[in-house]
Amino acid sequence: MRKGKIGIGVDCGSAFCKGALYQDGQIVSLIVYPTGWNIRATGERIVKALRGIAPLSLCLLPIVATGYGRDKILAQKTITEITCHARGAEFLRPGVRSVIDIGGQDYKVIAMEDGRATTFQMNDKCAAGTGRFLELVLGRLELDLDSLDALLAKGQTVTLNSTCVVFAESEIVGLLAQGTTREAILGGVVASMTAKIAGQAARVTIAEPAVLTGGLSQSREIAAALTRALGITVSTVENGLYAGAIGAAIMAAEIY
């Protein structure tokens, strides 16, 4: 059995826990569960599932954990999600220069050089610009994430004056009472999110190619909104949801 070519990465985010099994330069398997309340149990479930797929003789599979729940996972090493997302993004899109990751409770803008993170900016405690904001609004509007692109594609929008998520939610209640469409409200929310992200992005040097990772990484409309806000083309990337887990798995494989 060849050593140093296989690893498991677990990326425990606030909303979803993602796992990746990496072997010989390939992603063998990807897995995702809602994080739920018991981070440790969810992490263990992921590790167990990926171990089941890995060749039997490898009982000592190196594991790297990342994400905010990383300390709860039994792993050889923990590495922050910034480094992992950068490595994962480089794997998914070789030569990438910027990563915009929209997570459940934070967002980050990572500037890269030669496949590694050089500088980054993240939101502070505030939830504006994070996936949590969109999740809250979708819930309020009784919509699924799947319908997001179709609704945004209509190009409707409305100006939200509040950047604070809590205030914005009451503003949305007011807009609904005035008969504003759900499409326009969603458009306004996405414009507010991307403006917030653009503010942080201005503090690092971003360049193309830029990719979107995290839970919204499949959304063409979110990528388009980011492209408008940042002034550089931001593309969706297949398996962008797993970028952190993939980066962690690659670095796990480097342990031995």
Partner: peptide
């Protein structure tokens, strides 16, 4: 810790 950790990793 995430921010300080990521900074040190870079």
């Amino acid at each position: 810790k995430t921010r300080a950790g990521a900074f040190i990793e870079t």
